[in-house]
Every structure is written in structure tokens, then in C-alpha cells.
Computed example of a mutant assay.
Amino acid sequence: MSNNNNSNDNPLLVQMTKDELIRDFEQVVRKVVNQMQVEQQTSKEEKQAYTRVETAELLDVSLTTLHNWNKKEILKPCAKIGRNVYYSKNDIQAKLKIN
């Protein structure tokens, strides 16, 4: 058996208090949450289609108004998958410029 100092077979044990462990754990959780928020913001900016709820929030209108606009062909969905309705990013941006 060789004595290799670079081997990962020997675990490193660190002694710490309960408070230190909690602090370290909280730091890791904060990093993960921050990363998730950044990824979520990035994915929203890259989206090409939005759900009814997202569209209503972006346009600051109710779902009823969005439904009425659909009926009056003011803003038509670009896709419907099952019960889910999606509006195109370009159509939403055009509507934002008009208002």
C-alpha cells in the first residue's frame, strides 16, 4: 500500500461548532438562491413566448382584459398547447410601445 498524499481516499475532517456549521450552510444556500435568481432573470429575458399570466403582468392588465383583447384581435396568442396559451415576445413588446 503506497502512501500518496494526493489521494482522495483519505477524508479531511474539520472540527467546527454548530454555529459555524449553520453559518457555512446559510452561505451556501444564499449562493444557490442568488444563482437561481440570476438564471431566472436571464431566462425571462431570453424567452420568446410568455404565458397568459406572464403576459398580463408584463402589460399590467387583468386576465379578463387579455381574454377580451384576444376576442377583439387586439393581442392574439401565438400558440396554444393543451390548455396553455402563449403570447409572442414581439407582440407583447409592440403592445407595450403602443400603450
Rank of each mutant, 00 (worst) to 15 (best):
K71Q: 10
T65G: 03
I81T: 10
T64I: 10
S43T: 11
T65N: 09
S43Q: 14
I74P: 00
Q40W: 05
E73C: 01
A49E: 12
K71G: 01
Y50H: 05
L66W: 05
Q37A: 15
T55Q: 03
I74V: 14
E73R: 06
Q41H: 09
Y50D: 01
W69G: 09
L58N: 06
I81H: 08
T64Q: 15
R52A: 14
I81P: 00
K44H: 12
E45F: 04
L66D: 05
E57H: 11
Q37C: 06
E54L: 07
A49G: 02
A49P: 00
K47V: 03
K76N: 12
L59N: 11
P77L: 00
Q48Y: 06
T55S: 14
E45P: 00
D60T: 10
L66F: 04
V53T: 15
V61A: 13
D60K: 13
Y50K: 02
E45G: 09
W69M: 14
N68P: 00
Y50L: 05
V38S: 11
K72T: 09
K80V: 14
A56F: 07
V53M: 06
V38G: 02
N68G: 01
E57Y: 03
P77R: 01
S62G: 15
E54P: 02
E45I: 02
A49I: 12
L66Q: 06
T42C: 05
V38K: 13
K72C: 04
K47T: 03
Q37F: 03
L58E: 09
L59C: 11
K80Y: 02
V61T: 10
R52N: 02
K47F: 06
A79K: 08
E39V: 04
T55W: 03
K72S: 10
L75H: 08
T64M: 11
L59H: 10
K71I: 04
T51Y: 01
R52F: 01
I81V: 13
V53K: 15
T64V: 13
E45Y: 06
K47I: 03
E39A: 15
A79Y: 05
E54S: 09
P77V: 00
L75N: 09
K80G: 12
L59A: 10
A79S: 13
K71W: 00
L75Y: 07
V38E: 14
Q48W: 06
E73Y: 01
W69K: 08
E39P: 00
T55H: 04
Q40M: 12
Q41A: 15
S62T: 15
T65C: 05
K44S: 11
L59W: 08
E73Q: 12
S62L: 04
Y50I: 01
V38T: 14
L58R: 14
C78K: 05
E57K: 15
I74M: 07
K76G: 02
N70D: 13
T65L: 08
N70M: 03
E57C: 04
L66E: 09
T65M: 12
P77D: 02
I81A: 11
K47A: 15
